[in-house]
Design a protein around this nucleic acid. Structure first.
Length: 644
RNA sequence: GCCAGCGUAGCUCAGCUGGCUAGAGCGACUGAUUUGUAAUCAGUAGGUCAGGGGUUCGAGUCCCUUCGCUGGCUCCA
């Protein structure tokens, strides 16, 4: 007999050899029908695998993250089986579950898998699913595993087996398809009721650019058709809030082939939006003791040799600009820090001057591979809300924490509730990518870890994500389609101050090297605006909207009064416009709604007589009449409440 | 950069397996309409079908190539 302990603490006895599925059945058949896998002593198992001894058992269903991944992992095997039917001799790489669905990397030989094949593959998957074939687990020796895949001539699986230890290798077989797999899997294929292949993409085997490129097929499955329909609707909704689409519709920015790829052109309305964000940051930085500076867009090659950028990225960046007479070389600046270091050096510094916080909305240019460019979120020219804080070593923690506060204020003000703070450290193995001493790196890494802990941030740690000169704390936010982007960033740097031979005179009258903190709460204005647009679906908050108020006179005779209201609003620094077209009011309202203008003021006879405005709020509708002065006061208050 | 797909008017899209002079809606422009909470009516202009080359009696449609866009991969100061 075996004691099974449930998550609620209850313990029940079962005979030896009982499976998780048996346990579920003993509770209720409806539960058993939903069980996809089980967590046994903290490890995810097949629900059909016999339990051994006393265990902690947690039955996993679609509502559990592990339940879903098991579901999708099993779906990947089923898709592989379907694919093999259509593409005999196809070789298989890996087929893992991901956040939304799963993929399988395959090598179709000289054939091509394209979206045209999706329908038949989907149909085949469902056909196979209906057979309710069991996923059968078997433990195999390394020798047998190699033998099987040698016969099948699948070099990718053999490559995987090579790194596995004998005695730990398992196969799973469903229907006619056997795969090397750790598991776990669904009891049978019948759970898979709906499937959609999403797209095909190239993917290098084992993520190595030099290795062969395989075909990655993305797909998603569900336990019922409705969930799939809902998912597709969700994707379509997400596409509507794509910032590239919104940028065009709201006339914020554009791109031109002639200007060059990845180089956004900001239209008047988009520029207003940028200015609002910049002013917001300026105000907060001024209060926090930052000093604004301006530096040029290019810098001498020697500057970047000193900083280390040239050696590290010289070949992979925009190539140098040569002066016609002197033969000097200048580079478009990829970062502002070298320039700021030179500002620091422009005058001798005392410990009394520190921390020195130099801030600049600095436009930088980075060469990105053409395939990487994406709307505003990945561009070749962008403006950072950059700053470099030069401080004494014992000021690092305090300064770092203040910066975290500023980043959090930005996220809070713009209503970003879901973000991740990522501690980006060096690669654990490959240290060749980084400059500076082991000692400095350790100091910097520890400073970040400690500051994040002190601020109570929820963090994830990623190795290999550090900048080449120092570790980072990156604030990651998702776009409409679930892609993660880095927005704000804070970095501790002991290296550049040494390279630039920065120093200050301490209280001890000795020379010391300052520590540098790089930080950009927005990250870049471009990416921030891109993600912000998707976050709010283009419904910008009142304080950021390029046009805050549209004044809509009902007919010609109301225009003069409307113009007076406009004057009043402009005097109060409210961004407003009058729609003087001879159109029905319904049309004017519709156009203003489509432009997502936060407030509309409808002006007709009634308003003129009573010296009022009829207020309509975007997305909400008619709010009734109000005096113009009261309206101004109210919306100014609305703005202040957000910004303070 | 790599793999796959896409590229028709300012925008969104029709144009079947090659066959008259390439269409529609929105937008723009002109005129009429003076209007009460999400589209007034009519007319006009607007296209080297991304660029180049080829196959064919004939190419928006088929092939090659360059550019751009999309989705991934790799990269990312």
């Amino acid at each position: 007999m075996a004691n099974v302990k449930f998550p609620d603490g209850k313990v029940r006895e079962y005979p030896d050899g009982t499976t998780a599925l048996d346990v579920a059945k003993s509770i209720s058949n409806s539960l058993a029908a939903k069980v996809l896998a089980a967590k046994v002593n903290g490890e995810v198992w097949d629900a059909t695998r016999p339990l051994k001894g006393d265990v902690d058992l947690n039955l996993l269903t679609w509502d559990d993250k592990e339940g879903k991944s098991t579901f999708w992992h099993s779906s990947a095997h089923l898709m592989a089986e379907a694919l093999e039917g259509f593409f005999p001799g196809m070789k298989f790489g890996i087929g893992p579950p991901i956040e939304n669905g799963f993929y399988y990397d395959v090598d179709p030989g000289d054939k091509v898998v394209s979206a045209e094949d999706f329908k038949k593959i989907e149909d085949k998957i469902l056909e196979l699913a209906r057979k309710k074939e069991a996923y059968v687990r078997s433990e195999v020796s390394k020798g047998d595993a190699i033998k099987y895949f040698t016969e099948k001539d699948d070099k990718y699986k053999l490559d995987l087996i090579k790194d596995l230890q004998d005695g730990t290798i398992t196969f799973y077989k469903q229907g006619e398809f056997t795969d090397l797999c750790r598991g776990p899997h669904l009891p049978n294929t019948g759970f898979i009721k709906a499937v959609k292949l999403l797209n095909v993409a190239g993917a290098y085997w084992r993520g190595d650019e030099k290795a062969k490129q395989l075909t990655r097929i993305y797909a998603i499955t569900f336990p019922d058709q409705k969930q799939l329909t809902d998912y597709i609707t969700l994707i379509e909704e997400a596409k509507k809030r794509d910032h590239r689409k919104l940028g065009r519709e709201l006339e914020l920015f554009t791109f031109s082939e002639k200007v060059g790829l990845g180089l956004p052109l900001w239209l008047p309305k988009g520029t207003v939006l940028r200015e609002r964000l910049e002013n917001f940051m300026r105000k907060n930085q001024k209060e926090a003791g930052y000093l604004q500076v301006v530096t040029p867009h290019i810098g001498h090659k020697n500057l970047y040799i000193t900083s280390g950028h040239y050696e590290k990225y010289g070949k992979d960046s925009f190539q140098p600009i040569h002066t016609p007479q002197e033969g000097e070389e200048f580079l478009l600046k990829p970062m502002n820090c070298p320039h700021h270091c030179e500002i620091y050096k422009s005058s001798p510094r005392s410990y009394r001057d520190l921390p020195l916080r130099l801030a600049e909305f600095g436009t930088v240019y980075r060469y990105e591979q053409s395939g990487e460019l994406h709307g505003l979120t990945r561009v070749r020219g962008f403006t950072q809300d950059d700053s470099h804080i030069f401080c004494q070593p014992d000021q690092v923690m305090d300064e770092f924490c203040k910066v975290i506060d500023l980043v959090m204020k930005v996220l809070k003000t713009l209503d970003f509730k879901e973000y991740t703070a990522q501690i980006s450290l060096r690669d654990k193995v490959d240290r060749s990518k980084y400059i500076g001493s082991e000692e400095n790196w350790e100091k910097a890494e520890n400073a970040i870890i400690e500051a994040a802990a002190q601020k109570g941030l929820k963090t994830v740690t990623e190795y290999g994500e550090a900048a080449f000169y120092g570790p980072k704390l990156d604030f990651m936010v998702k776009d409409a389609l679930g892609r993660t982007w880095q927005l704000g960033t804070v970095q501790v740097d002991y290296n550049l101050p040494e390279r630039f031979e920065l120093e200050y005179v301490g209280a001890d009258n000795q020379k010391h090297t300052p520590v540098m903190i790089h930080r950009a709460p927005f990250g870049s204005l471009e990416r921030f605006i891109g993600v912000l647009l998707e976050h709010c679906a283009g419904n910008l908050p009142l304080w950021l909207a390029p046009d805050q108020v549209a004044i809509l006179p009902i007919s010609d005779k109301h225009v003069e009064y409307a113009e007076n209201i406009l004057k009043l609003l402009k005097k109060c620094e409210i961004r407003a416009l009058v729609d003087t077209r001879i159109e029905k009011i319904g049309r004017k309202i519709r156009d203003a709604e489509m432009q997502k203008i936060p407030y509309m003021l409808i002006i007709g006879d009634k308003e003129m007589e009573e010296n009022k405005v009829a207020v309509r709020r975007h997305g909400e509708g008619d709010k009734g009449q109000e005096g113009a002065a009261e309206f101004v006061e109210r919306i100014n208050k609305e703005i202040e409440e957000v910004l303070n």
